[in-house]
Write a protein that binds this DNA or RNA. Sequence first.
DNA 1: TAGGCCATCTGGTCCT
DNA 2: AGGACCAGATGGCCTA
Length: 391
Amino acid sequence: MGAGITAVAGDAQSGCAVGEQGSDGARETRLTQTSGELEQRGVMLTRLFSDPSLLPDVQKYSGWANDSEGDESKIKDEDADAQDDLDSDLRSGSRTHSEHAGDDDDDDDDDDEPEEDEDGENADGDRPKKRGPKKRKMTQARIERSRLRRVKANARERTRMHDLNSALDNLRKVVPCYSKTQKLSKIETLRLAKNYIWALSEILRSGKRPDLVAYVQTLCKGLSQPTTNLVAGCLQLNSRNFLTEQQCQDGGRYASGSFSVHSYPYQCARLPSPHCAPASNSHPLRTHGYCSYDSLYGASPEYNSPEYEALSPPLCVKHTGSASPEEKPYHYSMHYSGLTGPRATSAHNLVFGSSGPRAGIHTENVVPYHDVHLHHERAPVYDELNAFFHN
DNA sequence: TAGGCCATCTGGTCCT
DNA sequence: AGGACCAGATGGCCTA
């Protein structure tokens, strides 16, 4: 009883808060809802708390009952978040049930509540009969069902959005620039993905090595300045990696080579062959190897040594003491590497502006270098695109 | 502090 | 009837 009343009070506050932040019309609506219905909500919530028969559905979809029982093991999918979710569901459910009054006409009348009184509402004959569909009065049972429907719908919506976000996370991992610590926003992820697809399509269409400047321009088209800088930073980093990889190659060390980028020690994994099998990840776009620009175009030697596959997941991992890459998830990716010399410089200048011999060196001023390592794409992307566009 | 981004709630609509 | 999807509203968090 007491819990229900407390929840109602909290609801009232949240309802008012919502109204105060919204437009005047919405504010008035919200405010009028809260004051006159507090008592009804209190009754409802009290009944909900006291009626175990109403709990299963709520528990099933939101784990709400688990909160009171303290049994977190029963919480459905996820989570620690579920606790917050169910709490919010409980609050919101009571907050807005009155708003559902209009959409509950479809409720059947099998209520066990003494609600038949409203069926005889016009039986008194004092008021003239109204035309149109009969507006059923909200009974307690109907209100409860409505609220439970809303709770279930909220849970579904949360799950749906979580799935959508998971898909977006997966997309972030396969676009040319990926960072666990500096995630691209949703909209930037979509834009970059679109640009990336378009750029790859152009590569496939032309069938020749594209100009890096044009590639950068394509990738960064429509992106915000921070994202452009981030992508450019990844591009620059990979170009630098390529430089070092070439040096490694020249030194005859393919397995791994320590090299320094911006004075940070990195471990350099070699480029896998475009045709080498995935190391351990079955996802065609998610790989531990990477398909650089040169691997795509055959400029790199075969790097399919098991030694490379053992480097999982990253190719160039910043060593941060004893912390594992998982613990220090610094993760950037760049699929397009291998350009050096004037072109690379021009690409750097394109984004960062030319600043003499150190043009492009100030990537660390744009991208937080402390959390950078590479995440690379597999050549099957190329194959898949090829198959897709030239089937 | 303003603006961007995000999660969540909510009601409407469409589909099965 | 119920679920999926969508868009608007709202508030919280973070950063410049």
